[in-house]
Write a protein that binds this DNA or RNA. Structure first.
Lengths: 137, 137
DNA sequence: TAATTTTTGCACTAATGTTGCAATTAATTT
DNA sequence: AAATTAATTGCAACATTAGTGCAAAAATTA
């Protein structure tokens, strides 16, 4: 089984308390996390800036990915599949529950193909579905 | 042809300078606009707060819609179709060009259906594709 | 374990969004 | 068309969220 240090080393990152703890949080959370969630769940053990930088680093290294939202917040979730550094394979659908506000990665649901107009070149596609999640139903 | 005052009146809004000007901006822009773009393009003729409130009002009235992004900004675009107050029919795909950073509404491309896992109820689905737009190709 | 590199936390700065309230402007009524 | 009423605007103050430089601390390397 992969431990946090393994994952960090694999990405060429030094193993530090903050990185281990924050990665831990992602590993034990099935939904997505916002910066604020992380601060809450670490009881502010780390500086705000450290959290920002850790999230940035994780995104760059392909450990987590960002989820688009319409409410001016960035949500982050673990990359479950093989994301290489600087290149994400984040092709699953994200679900935001309008009742409990949780953001869930639907790893089984892949983003369907779309036909773009001529001369548009697709690099990535993200899909966000809002509705009621299984727990709130 | 529909003028800005018409559109505003139709939504039950008083016709004011700021609303006319901001609506104008949307009408003459094919892409999406962020709060900052609007401030730039109106040469700060209106207070920051007025712009915020105008955008909010327009969203509530179904004149514009918000586009999800991963970069902690909200983009707004005209609702081309029949959006009623408080209920958007915003089922088209949005395209963000990674070269020129423009956000474009692909009105012809509708968001494909997705099958959600059992017990998930869909309310809305948004899709954002990033890549190279026709102008940058 | 010492030297080097990286990361962290602090202080400061900047950008972004919100609220109350008086002044202004638009709509309504007479 | 003027007066009344209702809605909107702008200012000031505040709150939140994010970014940067740099010295101290921790992690990695030698």
């Amino acid at each position: 089984m992969k431990t946090q240090p393994d994952i960090l080393k694999q990405s060429g990152l030094s193993v530090t308390e903050s990185r281990k703890k924050i990665l831990d949080l992602f590993l034990e959370t099935d939904g997505a996390l916002a910066h604020a969630d992380i601060e809450k769940n670490t009881s502010s053990a780390f500086d705000r800036v450290t959290v920002y930088r850790t999230l940035q680093t994780f995104v760059e290294k392909g450990i987590i990915h960002q989820i688009p939202t319409t409410d001016n917040s960035i949500m982050y979730a673990l990359c479950k599949h093989n994301c290489e550094q600087g290149h994400h394979h984040d092709d699953h659908v994200h679900f935001i529950c309008s009742n409990c506000d949780k953001t869930i990665c639907l790893d089984e649901v892949t983003v369907p193909e779309v036909k773009l107009p001529k001369n548009f070149i697709k690099q990535q596609a993200a899909m966000v579905v809002t509705g009621i999640c299984e727990d709130c139903k």
